[in-house]
Amino acid sequence: MTTDLTSALAGARILPVLTVPSEEMAAPLAAALVAGGAQCAEVTFRTAAAEQVVKAMAAHGGLVVGAGTVLTAEQVERAVAAGARFVVSPGWDDEVVAKCLELGVPVVPGIATATELMRALRAGLGTVKLFPAEQLGGLDTVRALAAPFPQARFVPTGGIGPDRLSEYLAEPSVLAVGGSWMAPGALLECGDHAEIRRLTAQAVERSTR
């Protein structure tokens, strides 16, 4: 992982995880997130418009935009071509990691076990996504993995809401927390950017406590 992304995540502490169904939603969403204080965003490759959304949000200039739910090397290529500055995968995939390393794009692989974490560290990847965090045991699992691997930094994602954000971020091994609660699908569909801005600002404020 490049120092730039590590610094960006460490500075942001929160990573909005976005599933955006149309390109038209991208620009106002980026503006709302930036207005709320977000510095990074992950656009999931779960929709047909994902590439266009990455491109449009990256064009805003106020966010470090990455691609999430990346499952194949081909998706890595498409994401990077669209302007993604980092790649997040829900699990470990040799081809995804190899393609990211080949292209020089930072990758945050998902892990759920010590075995997967060891594989990531062996590949030179010191920051990993614990996913799905809450379902895997939450902070207890973070602490259990951090004990034998103090060099690892975690971006827990999955089932975490605003009420537990401060608790997660107080853990020294947690670099940032990912979550979709700042821009849920219902708010995107109705275009409630004021509420997205409010939820983002609330998360940013809690991340500094």
Rank of each mutant, 00 (worst) to 15 (best):
A152N: 13
K129C: 03
G185W: 01
D163C: 07
A170V: 03
S173E: 08
E189I: 03
L169I: 07
E171L: 07
A170P: 01
Q151P: 08
C190Q: 15
A133L: 06
F131M: 06
E171C: 10
L145N: 09
A176G: 02
A144N: 02
Q135W: 11
E134R: 11
E189F: 06
G138V: 00
S180D: 02
R153S: 12
S166C: 10
P172F: 14
A133R: 09
P132A: 13
G137E: 09
L139E: 10
G161L: 12
E171G: 04
D192C: 00
L139N: 06
A144C: 08
Q151L: 02
S166G: 14
A146F: 15
L188R: 00
S180I: 10
V177L: 00
V142N: 06
C190G: 05
G159V: 15
D140C: 06
P148G: 15
A146S: 03
V174N: 04
L169Y: 11
A133Q: 07
A170S: 08
G191E: 10
L136K: 03
E167T: 11
Y168Q: 10
L188Q: 02
R153W: 06
A176P: 00
S166V: 15
D192W: 02
G159P: 13
Q151T: 08
D192M: 04
E171Y: 10
R143T: 13
L169S: 12
L188K: 02
G191K: 08
L188M: 05
A144D: 00
D163L: 09
A176Q: 04
G179W: 01
S180P: 07
D140V: 09
V174F: 06
Q135A: 15
L145R: 10
G137H: 11
L136P: 07
L136C: 02
L187V: 04
A183S: 04
P150R: 14
D140R: 11
F131R: 09
L165Y: 06
P132S: 11
D163P: 09
F154L: 05
L175N: 09
G138Y: 07
A186W: 01
P156D: 14
D192N: 03
A170W: 04
L169P: 04
P132I: 12
F131N: 11
G179F: 01
D140E: 13
P184C: 11
T157Y: 08
P184Y: 08
G178D: 09
S180M: 08
A144S: 09
G137M: 09
G158W: 10
